[in-house]
Amino acid sequence: MAPNTRRFLFGSALVVAAGLCTGLVAYYSGVLPSRQVVRGELAFIPADVAAVAYADVRQIMDSEFRQRLRSALPAAGSEKDRMLEATGIDIERDIDAVVAGLQGDGTPGGIAILRGRFDRSRIEAAALQHGAVEEQYGGYAMLVGRPHTFDDGTSSHRLAPSVAFLGDGLLGLGDADELRRAIDVSVSGESLSAAPDMMRLIDDVSGTGDAWFVARVARMTRQPGLPEQVQNQLAGVEWLAASANIDRSVRGRVRAEARDDRSAEDLRAVVNGAVAAARLFAGQDQRVTAALNSLQASGSGRQVELAFELPPSLLELLEARAAAAMSPGPAAGH
């Protein structure tokens, strides 16, 4: 092989290798700052959860979309105040990120791990005021609330809403038993970080947006009260993953992984049909049309994907509707 040919091939291989190395480094290391952090939170989520969700609260709260949403739906502000009163946590100020693990199979509960800057004495004061008691479990301090019975329509469950201080800047919220289990799995290593099937999808979606969600669909569909029609549609779906990027608009991607190619084809047909139908019946409002036009269905093999965008114009529509709802009706005639 002539030297110039060898040099060309070497250069070409170098470019490809450099690109692949960059991608690999990005994939396995710190280019995704949130994912590094998320690994810490995932250590407290049991491996058998039905779903796990993440939100970069700081990013979402700072986003233009959130600001506009707040003005469009002022009622959201009262939720914030209620949280502050109950837990002493100001979600706009104190929380950076949240990871939640959901059981989803009819068992109520689940836990949320919050990362942020928390005023422990304020939280303790708020909890104790509501009748919580202090407890030490596995080396962590917990505030265990008064148990109360929860009835989901088919059976009743006893829950004790609690708070656990899980280390520097980490706070656990949830039922006392769930929190104790979270501490157990963080010690035993039986956490979500050790569940390769779930982590595969988490790795895929984490870093693609400010919020994401991964679910074992089979377990989620065991949820009582889920309409049978929805259960049937999801019967062939094994995994569901979604991520959203929230800034001026909300851009997102929902990915379903079917059990087999056949189920995926069925699901694709359903999704495509639904998208097409939505477009056909969207009406004349250009803001809705723009949102529907952003829907992109795709996928091959066992994958079905739907990409979407909620543009700022959609918020204008919401603002207009909210304003119409709040304005006094026309004066009654005499």
Binding site: R268, Q296, S298
Partner: peptide, 21 residues
């Protein structure tokens, strides 16, 4: 993902299917 600009595209895509790996 591929763009689906019109409902017709989407319906056509729904009728065809991508082959498995």
């Amino acid at each position: 993902a591929m763009p689906a600009d019109t409902p017709l595209d989407v319906l056509q895509r729904a009728m065809t299917g991508a082959p498995g790996v």
